[in-house]
Design a protein around this nucleic acid. Sequence first.
DNA 1: TATCTAATTAGACATTAATCAAATTAGGAG
DNA 2: CTCCTAATTTGATTAATGTCTAATTAGATA
Lengths: 191, 191
Amino acid sequence: MQLTRIVEFHKVLADLTRIRIIALLKQGPLHGQAIAGKLSLTPPTITHHMSKLREVGLINERRDRNTIYFSLNEDVLESCAAAILSIGNGEGNMDMFVTESERAAILNNFITADGKLKTIPAQRKKRLVVLSHLVKGLEFGKIYSEKEISDYLRSYHPDYATLRRELIIHQFMYRKDGQYELNPPELWSLH
Amino acid sequence: MQLTRIVEFHKVLADLTRIRIIALLKQGPLHGQAIAGKLSLTPPTITHHMSKLREVGLINERRDRNTIYFSLNEDVLESCAAAILSIGNGEGNMDMFVTESERAAILNNFITADGKLKTIPAQRKKRLVVLSHLVKGLEFGKIYSEKEISDYLRSYHPDYATLRRELIIHQFMYRKDGQYELNPPELWSLH
DNA sequence: TATCTAATTAGACATTAATCAAATTAGGAG
DNA sequence: CTCCTAATTTGATTAATGTCTAATTAGATA
């Protein structure tokens, strides 16, 4: 993870109101007005903070009629909090830019003619490229069960469990209560 | 750990310059001017950032003649980074205020007549009180070897290894390369 | 269509904070 | 004592940001 992203994450947590929002959301989903009430703040203020939290991928939301329920993405919280510890540990600080031709070469090396995954790349960069490829067969906005995800991944490679975990770790997907959902591309660790 | 302390920690990391300083110090100790040179900033700016880092206990320093070598306290980095994950998990969010009579009662329960430690308290609050008592026999500013610390702790309780680890985790002491040093009281998790 | 509620946007105000230049302090070395 | 170097303090400037009120948008329902 690049340094500026680490800074962005910590900027988001560098505010008491947002920490309190996180503490609230740990107990379960809440809608905006409820958060505003509990913290004695106005709805616009909550909107402001939610958009900050959303920018770094900490928030997932679900509509129910007119009201939006916000919930916490604990996987992102965990991986971002750990990022500061692995600065300079080789993996994290490499240049993450991938050209189109590099990308094509990597996919050519790891994807067989019939579209299966030969092996899971050990190198982080190559693994990310492969994951971003796998994820193309999933639909944005759709909710998947764990079984659906596993079956889908198994159609590429027998070690579906590793692939599934990698999709979460690198923020291609969001998981909560056994339900999986694609994250927007700007959250993927590839970018 | 209380919410405001978590906020303070993240504020300190919410700056690119300070993250870069941390990245530099991960490779080893450096003096002020060296940091200023590597980051193309002026010495006063570095002083400013070092004092911010010091406020949350991330920095230890050693003088050699005229120049001060700063180094990173990775234990603090680790425990503070983890704090955001355990908000609301029982342990962290309890009221940490301890009155003098409470303190006396706790010590009376866990310290025998001849000054030994009966058992290591399971409750966090009581454990902290006991640790703050043990640490009274250590001298501030003095550098201890691991053996010295172990021997000292063993004079209170046979499980010296647990006590030693607890002293680090709760920031009563700082450890680097097998050398131990007392932290200033304001860093102790008790306060 | 009209209405109601939740959420967001826009704009203003106040506060915090990063940086630098200049002056000062601290500790050694000659 | 005098100089030298590293670190710090002070004061000023600029940029970023949390919060509010007022206005607007979005979606659902009657």
